[in-house]
Write a protein that binds this DNA or RNA. Structure first.
Lengths: 348, 348
DNA sequence: GTGAAAGCGCTAACAA
DNA sequence: TTGTTAGCGCTTTCAC
């Protein structure tokens, strides 16, 4: 293994010079720099991560805590993770993958050992077990998702309340007055994951303002469960003319079932989905949808956490890296699945 | 920050004693151990990861290289990743998440810096760019997937050739003689990802042995593309009575389309899927399927890589941790989507 | 613009 | 069974 000392000897300079060439923390004459860089290349030198971490108290690693669950829509999680890893690398950091499995204890371990300089928590629940530890931790953290109490915390999330409102707005403009919401699996609500509840909140608020009726039903991802949910909806509210779906796994089954039942989209029933773009465009009908900006969420989380790391290390003046909540504005794209509400000429 | 030295002082022992209590590498009297453990608890001590890595030349980190792609079935990737992280934690290791983004260079960086003790590579292609580096690397590696040349490498994968054969076997027993294969996206074949090609190989082999005909068509995940693929299949081979699907995203659309076309499953057409169990059971018809053992793959990869790490550190005798390929046997579960081939009494 | 040297916190001989 | 001590490879004052 090639060490910094060997590079120094090879280049005929001192160890500190090599170190400073690497870090750029002091000015080096062009001649010296070039000689050192040549030696580094020739010897195939790679700085030792452990030694660096020890000497600098910085690991250049960000921990990413993922949920262990499988009832959430996985591709979104994955896209966030990839965005986090990619962005972190661009800023010279690596990502340590933690699963929920270890529980809150993982926070303590990672922070205590200095393994990671900071952490990003995904799938945050309203009353999240990890939050007390995060609040006390001497390391920066950013949450993806919104807990009930955000004091002292930095959070990034899609503005799901606005998302719910926007869906209703769009449907109301088309004259829909009887709207159903096909939501996430029941377990998601029981666990009080914020985003699902916040969406409903937004939907209800806006519907109340506009005088529309809302029927909300949770739904597991399966075809069978979707069939049941749909049956119940049309049973309880035969006049339903629009559906908002917030369960990606249920979208395919739903469209399939509607077709089977002879309900045309959007002539008989309008559909708005809350899902990644890819899902919206790959269906039998291109769906009007609010995109889940997974990539953007991951990227912002890294940027925020990096700003905190830098603020902590550098100057005393904390430059707006303090706790705050960043809500990404929803964006509704109109496609082929929404249209004017049918005039109520149907059955008696 | 609490250091080992402070713990030692607090407990009235030497630093090495604390270290040995932690590592268990030498026998400690119960009295001393308890005293040390008490001090550790009282002071809230966590060993510093960097210092440990530096002194022991072991980071206790395994790097996991994921593909950056999005045309693969993401949930499987995610399940593997979670299995890797979970299993690694059980064995005292953490997981560093690398994306394909950095390219082969990432291998060099991680290995060179001693950031990771070993690596696991996912989504290996037949001619994978990373393999030359992996072969030379002074650190153990395990591949999930099978490259063209496996010499000097350790690989884990589902036996896709056997999977293909097994699907044909099952269908042939039901009397099917005209079988279509709906495959992965064309890009997957162009990239020469082994598993897709190997499945087709197995299907063709077994079909030839049994005198059945095979028509293979790649298929993107979308509804539209599935419609096209299906149309072409029945156009070219109107006598097709069975389909093998190896594109999870296409399964829902396919079932939906078949229903629309008035083709009953399994009365008119039998369907075998190669997909995770969850996908097979969540459809409108419970699918006969060969499971993709994502969890098992991740777990085995970690076990193999850990055995290598231990072999490298410990005794000189390499105890069967040398390069080899481990093929997980496919397991076909019969559900409701397969049945006897219809007798050819149809159209003129 | 460069060098010398004192650690960073831990492990693992070597001694006792 | 326990203690002493010399590094591990790098960063970062100081000093010039």
């Amino acid at each position: 293994m090639v060490t910094l000392a060997e590079v120094a000897r090879h280049a005929g300079v001192s160890a500190s010079t090599v170190s400073y060439v690497l870090s750029g923390k002091r000015t080096i004459s062009t001649r010296t720099r070039e000689r050192v860089e040549k030696s580094i290349r020739e010897l195939g030198y790679h700085p030792n991560a452990g030694a660096r971490a020890l000497a600098s108290s910085k690991s250049n690693i960000i921990a990413l805590m993922m949920p262990l669950r499988t009832d959430m829509y996985v591709p979104v999680m994955m896209e966030i993770a990839i965005a986090v890893a990619t962005t972190a690398r661009e800023r010279g950091h690596d990502v340590l993958l933690l699963t929920g499995q270890e529980g809150p204890e993982a926070v303590r371990r990672v922070v205590g050992s200095g393994l990671a300089d900071a952490m990003i928590l995904m799938d945050v629940e309203l009353q999240d077990q990890r939050l007390p530890l995060v609040r006390e931790a001497p390391r920066p953290a950013v949450l993806i998702g919104l807990p009930a109490d955000t004091s002292d915390l930095t959070c990034v999330d899609l503005d799901f309340v606005a998302t719910g409102r926007q869906c209703v707005d769009h449907l109301a403009e088309f004259g829909h007055r009887d709207i159903a919401v096909v939501g996430e699996a029941a377990a998601v609500y029981e666990r009080h994951t914020g985003f699902a509840e916040r969406t409903i909140l937004g939907v209800r608020e806006r519907a109340a303002e506009l005088g529309a009726r809302v029927l909300h039903r949770p739904c597991e991802g399966s075809y069978e469960s979707m069939a049941g949910t749909l049956a119940r909806i049309f049973d309880e509210r035969p006049g339903t003319t629009a559906v908002i779906v917030q369960n990606e796994a249920a979208i395919g089954p739903m469209l399939s079932l509607l077709r089977q039942q002879g309900r045309a989209v959007p002539e008989d029933i309008s559909v708005v989905a809350i899902c990644p773009e890819q899902v919206a465009t790959q269906q039998s009908v291109a769906l009007t949808s609010v995109a889940i900006p997974a990539h953007e969420m991951g990227r912002r989380a890294v940027e925020l956490v990096m700003a905190k790391i830098e603020a902590a290390g550098g100057n005393g003046a904390a430059e707006a890296t303090g706790p705050h909540t960043e809500m990404l504005p929803p964006q509704l794209t109109v496609r082929a699945s929404t249209g004017p509400a049918p005039s109520p000429t149907g059955a008696p």
